[in-house]
């Protein structure tokens, strides 16, 4: 983070984009680990965490985006509710955060469920992480545009659902865009299995990836690991990046491979040499070497 110029805003002011997984299949399903931490319990941990972020620095900002199965939406923005709290100041700040977030969350879950009624939900268990990541990045760009005075943004994914393979390209696009704008993506996985997408996301963007051993103590994990601002992270020993496996798996057998063949046209990965690319249909010449002879042959097999 060294190249970010010093801001008038002190370095420890942060904007936290929290992506909340509201996948009903995760929270109600026969998932063994989440039974120890039901959704209401999970929410109390998260709400206390959000409060503690806002209390750490009065300029801190929190935006919560719900990641549903059929849609994604903003459910809370601490900056937009500031003026409104001034109007109804008889309540304390905390209940307002909670009540507003909870009511929006309820609306969102109902809407999300309504959308799912139309098509059969069979097999859909992944939530739309790519959508909420894209939304968060758009919001962060707006914060960057707002001028030189802005809080340091970061994204925290509280994800429990398994990865949706169809989102791979979109999630990778979001990761690279976050990397370009130096926004770290932290991930806290509360589901049963590790998330390969989030491991890559955190590794590439320099965020923290953590899968808590004991979901009951979620608040402690959140407050000790994910509450720290970017400046303080330099002085802390946060969980080390796990060894991310960057090997690819081949398109033909879905095996993870060390060495493979890549189609030069569409970048499909194969474990053996093929005559023709099964994805884009291009006909291959010899694999490597023998460069001159293939030049002329090209046109005939294509047409």
């Amino acid at each position: 983070m060294a190249s970010i110029p010093s801001k008038l805003y002190s370095d420890d002011v942060s904007l936290l984009m929290l992506l909340l997984d509201t996948n009903p299949f995760l929270w109600t399903g026969a998932n063994t680990t989440t039974t120890s931490l039901p959704f209401p319990g999970f929410l109390t941990h998260v709400l206390s965490f959000l409060n503690s972020i806002l209390l750490l620095n009065q300029l801190n900002q929190v935006v919560v985006i719900a990641t549903g199965v059929n849609s994604c939406d903003y459910i809370y923005d601490s900056s937009s509710s500031l003026q409104k709290t001034a109007d109804s100041s008889e309540n304390g700040r905390m209940p307002i955060l909670c009540s507003r977030l909870l009511s929006k969350l309820e609306e969102f879950v109902i809407e999300d469920e309504r959308l799912s009624k139309d098509d059969s939900p069979e097999g859909i268990v992944s939530s739309l992480l790519s959508g909420s990541l894209s939304l968060a990045l758009c919001y962060i760009q707006r914060v960057f545009r707002s001028g030189p005075l802005h809080p340091q943004p970061r994204i925290l994914c509280l994800q429990g659902s398994p990865d949706g393979p169809e989102q791979y390209v979109a999630i990778m696009n979001a990761i690279f865009s976050a990397q370009r704008s130096m926004v770290p993506i932290d991930s806290c996985v509360i589901g049963a299995q590790h998330s390969a997408f989030l491991q890559q996301a955190s590794y590439i963007t320099g965020g923290v990836y953590l899968k808590p051993q004991l979901p009951d103590g979620l608040f402690q994990y959140l407050s000790t690991v994910f509450a720290t601002d970017l400046l303080s992270r330099n002085f802390l020993r946060l969980p080390k990046p796990v060894g991310v496996d960057f090997r690819a798996s081949c398109f033909c057998h879905k095996k993870t491979i060390d060495m493979g063949y890549i189609c030069s046209v569409c970048l499909s990965i194969f474990c053996k040499h093929h005559k023709k690319c099964s994805t884009c249909g291009s006909v291959f010449g010899q694999a490597l070497g023998d460069t001159s002879s293939t030049d002329r042959k090209r046109k005939t097999p294509e047409t």
């Binding site: 491979i257 063949y261 030069s264 046209v265 010449g285 490597l288």
Partner: peptide, 19 residues
Amino acid sequence: PAIAEFAVANLIKMGFPQR
């Protein structure tokens, strides 16, 4: 945009090293 005759479609051998 690639012009078909300019580059031959080919399989390229690549390695995916581990850390």
